[in-house]
């Protein structure tokens, strides 16, 4: 665990609230708490709707990993592009995409972000600079350096945040992408969300490399391992990585140590890990509880939490209702959007 970002080490104290806590102010922490809670509750609801038969097919929930995307998002600026795998609901909500549209896509309705033709794994928003949602493991890494290539080609200082799991990190195209990104100094932050299991195979059983953050070393890509359950650690590392890319120094690799509470998709035998492992992380390392404790210590009142929780609950309930009552796509949608302009 070298280079682990320990909260409190080198980051400046918050200037606004006097707490001896680096990185985020109380207001920013409240925002992080809210954003993470929205993802958590949204995903729980999605799981429930799946159980009721309202969502079909694949449904990969982000529960447990919320601090990663929220910490990254808070370090980004408008115009930075994001791309990820099929475990994408968290990225979409963090990017500010409409929860109604996301949930309605999960239920396959006309009002979904992809008009019901993409589903859980395939949603996009040009407006929010979210480029999917990709169902082929590792494909988004090569596509992600393409987003970075476009930024560089156009001469902007925008960066590409390219998420992939530790499972995808073994894909050949990831290393082709490392080479290309380093060769052309592309502004790409590679974010490995190491949730320890590629479907049911633990990282130890899949990767000969035990320090994924070092996997870019042969190409000179700086890397850092980060506690992905600590939103402040994520945010601090993200700021550093994004600054590196914006300055034209080429790509940066972040390995986020995180954990997925739920199964890979919905149908998961849960035989590949001990229940106690899940319980321990939930109880001792939950990223949302962590922020809640920080906020409590900073004097945030129960009523403030209640207010945020109520608001989240309302948004999720509204999205759910919308997703349940929206019409299915018209059959005429079958043939739309196959080709542009036809």
């Amino acid at each position: 665990m070298t280079e682990q970002n320990n909260a409190g080490q080198s980051r400046p104290d918050s200037a606004t609230d006097g707490r001896n806590h680096p990185g985020l102010t109380t207001d920013q922490l409240k925002q992080a708490y809210y954003d993470m809670l929205l993802i958590r509750r949204f995903e729980e609801k999605a799981g429930q709707l799946y159980g009721m038969g309202l969502i079909g097919g694949f449904c990969h929930l982000y529960i447990g990993q919320e601090a990663v995307v929220v910490g990254l998002q808070m370090a980004q600026k408008d115009g930075d592009k994001v791309i990820t795998s099929y475990r994408d609901h968290g990225q979409m909500l963090a990017a500010g995409m409409d929860p109604r549209g996301v949930m309605a896509e999960l239920t396959g309705r006309a009002t979904g972000l992809s008009h019901g033709k993409g589903g859980s794994m395939h949603m996009f928003s040009r407006e929010k600079n979210f480029y999917g949602g990709h169902g082929i493991v590792g494909a988004q890494v090569a596509l992600g350096i393409g987003l970075a290539f476009a930024n560089k080609y156009r001469g902007t200082d925008e960066v590409s945040i390219t998420y992939f799991g530790e499972g995808a990190s073994n894909q050949g195209q990831v290393y082709e992408s490392f080479n290309l990104a380093a060769l052309h100094k592309l502004p790409c932050v590679f974010v490995i969300e190491n949730n320890r299991y590629g479907m049911g195979t633990s990282v130890e059983r899949a990767s000969a490399s035990k320090a994924l953050w070092k996997n870019g070393e042969p190409w000179g890509i700086p890397g850092k391992q980060v506690d992905g359950m600590d939103v402040e650690a994520v945010n601090a590392a993200a700021k550093e990585a994004i600054a590196h890319c914006r300055e034209g120094k080429g790509p940066y690799l972040l390995e986020m140590s995180t954990y997925r509470y739920r199964g890979h998709s919905m149908s998961d035998p849960a035989k590949y890990r001990q229940r106690s492992e899940v319980d321990e992380i939930r109880q001792k390392h939950d990223p949302i509880d962590h922020v809640r404790n920080l906020l409590k210590a900073a004097g945030v009142e129960d009523t403030d939490f209640k207010e945020m929780e109520t608001k989240v609950k309302e948004i999720v309930a509204d999205a759910t209702e919308f997703a349940k009552t929206s019409p299915e796509p018209d059959p005429s949608e079958l043939f739309t959007d196959v080709l542009v302009g036809e």
């Binding site: 090569a142 992600g144 393409g146 476009a150 050949g172 992408s177």
Partner: peptide
């Protein structure tokens, strides 16, 4: 594989 993906992302 890598450069075709890169080009597709740019597109």
């Amino acid at each position: 594989h890598g450069f075709t993906g890169m080009a597709t992302g740019a597109a």
